[in-house]
Design a protein around this nucleic acid. Structure first.
Lengths: 337, 337
DNA sequence: TTGAAAGCGCTAACAG
DNA sequence: CTGTTAGCGCTTTCAA
């Protein structure tokens, strides 16, 4: 209950607290002998530094925040994994915050970081987020920020993402190669650059293949499963039912499969499906699903590395950095030639 | 960059820092008028308190740690969700740590909490963890601890879990009711009470049904997919191949499905499968998988609520609390009558 | 109802 | 190489 602090160690050893402090950080101005004695006692008494005291003093907390829309999604789970593994190696601590796609909440969360709680932030914005003002404000208060996955384009902030345009293009080309003529794109937000990029890739592929846009459909889904379910069902019952579907985020795949099963629309015979996903179960779905698999772990890892580098190197121009890690198409039964 | 602090506010208003501090926490000894002026200015200047200073002073950080074996698993993702939602409501912050089933790491992580970094800890131990010494030590340094999911029995620590014994029993009875005679149980650790409890339920069900234990098999899996894959494959190729499988954790389901597919062992015709799982995709697997679904979100939520109650009520005897939230059997195609 | 002052534990500048 | 000291920003007695 009564914690060991630097003063305890100092008294016990008959030296000053300042010396102990320096010895503990292996300062060059302390003799090897003293260091040894300090370290030995610290270990013996299991001294654990009070990080609130040192953070207050140093104005550095060795803590970062990860701000995410949700966590029950393979992409984000894997990304957290990547982030945490780097943080653990570098001695950083990771605070986690979920916005549940709520922009107000995102603003409040970031605002709370303005007085030193964290040294840096890794963020994937909500589907409601339309601008970066809150992020810029945070940066001007001295906190480093790296966006990952759901990033903003045309803005000077460090970003780590994947090749969304090419992936959308590739996925759609795959569907056309499988013979699809009426391909639907399921979007998740009109604000998010990632789904828009994927959509642009999709549109490009349609044009390339001279597929009339009038036969294609873009379904704007929401953060509301019941709504998506209904909208999708309606689409699949329409006179001009798509024969190909590209789902821009993981959770929509489950909706697609569920709706198709209920309507007795067969995958892949009646409709072929490709989804952006990192589902571990992708291969054992009924049928197994063709996916665009993102390097989720690596994206988290790269974002964290970038952040730590900027935190540890002076004169590192974080805002100019941008990393792009390619996704890849994994062909399975739901859409194959 | 230059932060607003209590002194800034005090100067601006021509009052003392102490008064500002009290006004900000709505202390009864401050006049309504002063409070109003303080709050107004704080809002105007977007004052954010420095939590390192207040934590140092109060020896309370309003921060908890969640220590988990992994996160790429639906159970833990959902549990985090539950924890985070309660924390956000109560104004607590959540640090996350992954042990990757490594006991040494678990010890190191807990050790770091001994000097005030967190007020409380929610932990689900590694599959290697055999005793609670590190947890007890943490408690004696004044940190509150609640175990969830992977808990210890026979030890005075707050626990939140599910009815593992009954679930194992129920799942196995379901398999026997489906006609299985040679049922295999896939365990994940010999140390974890949860898989052992599930196994006891399994054994009980075998006895009840006079199924000779000699025909049943218990396969001890490891934290090593390649190993599990091989071991399972061997089992499924043996002369006495099981006609029923109970997988004690989520990720093993994927291994089972993969192996069966490769060996052309048909589910459910040749072998029926039940798995403990919260996979969102359970219903659209090939075939859809019968599961024991745990109330993962609720378990996280309950664990967090318990922790916060103990942190906020004095004289709350945390260590005597124990909450049990029932899981339920969801029958799907991989094992049904 | 407000102010003054001490101090949480640590670090860093400076002195010795 | 070691010690002394001031102070990070906040809370909390105690005095006014």
């Amino acid at each position: 209950m009564s914690q060991i602090n630097i003063r305890t160690l100092a008294k016990e050893l008959g030296i000053s607290p300042g010396t102990v402090s320096k010895a503990l950080k292996d300062s060059h101005e302390i003799s090897a002998d003293t260091k040894e004695r300090v370290l030995a006692l610290a270990k013996k008494l299991n001294y654990v530094p009070n990080i609130y005291a040192s953070s207050l003093r140093k104005k550095r907390s060795k803590t970062i925040a990860v701000v995410l829309p949700e966590v029950a999604d393979s992409f984000f789970s894997l990304a957290i994994n990547g982030i945490e593994s780097v943080a653990q190696k570098k001695g950083y601590h990771v605070l986690i915050y979920l916005t549940h796609e709520n922009f107000i909440k995102e603003q409040e969360i970031l605002n709370d970081f303005k007085n030193g709680r964290v040294d840096g932030v890794l963020i994937s914005v909500t589907s409601e987020t339309k601008h970066a003002q809150h992020i810029n404000e945070l940066q001007s208060s001295g906190v480093r920020v790296v966006m990952f996955d759901r990033v903003f384009e045309n803005i000077q902030i460090a970003k780590v993402g994947t090749n969304d345009f090419e992936s959308g293009l590739l996925a759609t080309e795959h569907l056309t190669a499988c013979g699809c003529k009426r391909i639907a794109y399921l979007s998740i937000s009109k604000n998010l650059s990632i789904t828009n990029q994927r959509m642009e890739g999709y549109k490009n592929a349609l044009e390339e293949n001279n597929l009339s846009a009038s036969f294609s459909q873009i379904l704007h889904c929401k953060n509301d499963e019941a709504y998506n379910y209904k909208a999708l069902k309606k689409m699949m019952q329409s006179h001009n039912r798509p024969d190909g579907i590209l789902a821009s985020v993981e959770k929509l795949i489950i909706t697609v499969y569920t709706v198709c099963r209920e309507l007795n629309v067969r995958i892949p015979q009646d409709v072929k499906v490709v989804g952006f996903s990192n589902l571990a179960s992708a291969g054992i779905l009924n049928p197994s699903v063709t996916t665009i698999a993102q390097p989720a772990f690596e994206i988290g890892e790269a974002a964290a590395l970038l952040l730590f580098k900027s935190l540890e190197k002076t004169g590192f121009n974080l805002n100019e950095k941008s990393i792009n890690l390619p996704s890849k198409l994994v062909v399975r039964d739901s859409a194959k030639q």
